[in-house]
Design a protein around this nucleic acid. Sequence first.
DNA 1: CGTCCAGGTCTAC
DNA 2: GGTAGACCTGGACGC
Length: 315
Amino acid sequence: MEIPLAGAGGEPVDLWRTLSSHGVADLPPNRLHEDERMLETTLPLDGQPRSVRISAGSPGHAVVEVEGRAPGKREAAAVADRVAHILRLDEDLSAFYDAVRADPDLAWVLKGAGRMMRSPTVFEDVVKTICTTNCTWSATVRMVSALVEHLGEPAAGVTPDGPFGRAFPTPEAMTAANLDFYRDVVRAGYRGAYLHSLTESVADGSVDLEALGAATRDELPDDELAAHLLALPGVGPYAAAHIMMMLGRYSRLILDSWTRPKYARLTGGRAKKDTTIERRFRRYGPYAGLAFWLFLTRDWVDEEGAPAGIAAAWA
DNA sequence: CGTCCAGGTCTAC
DNA sequence: GGTAGACCTGGACGC
């Protein structure tokens, strides 16, 4: 099936930029296939999960291939909804695009960058983000892979390949696993207690992450959302900023051991103070964090491959 | 071998 | 409110 690629304000959407918009998008059950510019993932649905492959389709469209048996009409519609959600097609970025036009360092964004891919659930993004804290990327991959491989429900009609071909585990499944599992199998170290405590709170309903994600800025201002996230076990300033960017709240800059040196390298070498970096992006107001992230990740995608057409009209 | 540290967070001053 | 120290893990280093 094909899905039209356009933002809620009619903005262009660069599919590959979206699929590779941040590292968490490449954690199981997601897998990026760079050569084919395709993302493989497994989506939770009302029934059994389904594995899909998302890549470029006819001009201005993404093509979604469902693996295993062909989906029924209703199931296909549910899959399309999920895919539109993870691609963040419901968001209107036109105000941000109006702002970057005047910034020579970011005008390239107008070709359709800036859409941060998200997971099917806020829960998945929060758990994955906690697994990025204070460890190398290889450790993050190991932890998330173990969670999905051992606790994730297999997709219909496919043979799971390790952590692939399974949906991300539910809060219930993660709560049912004991602390020994987090220590001995996930090798999560001190994060094990955070993960178990968090999943338990979500499973018993005392914490509603999906509601936090669905709340509008009017209902829940960024500062209040940040306070809710910071109250979660294992979530500090870095993790809160990262989660907020995945929730479409871009006011905060993700300042960590990767972004700080990368910013320094792109701006002439010397390390900059956090306040200096924040001042550079303050002009973007509620989009400051998004502008910062795009500034840092411009070289992640070869710009030759960006689509023309409606993108050119927006520039 | 030991030390350091990675896309930090928590607790205790 | 700001700031040390501890914290699991496992690669990357230096000795």
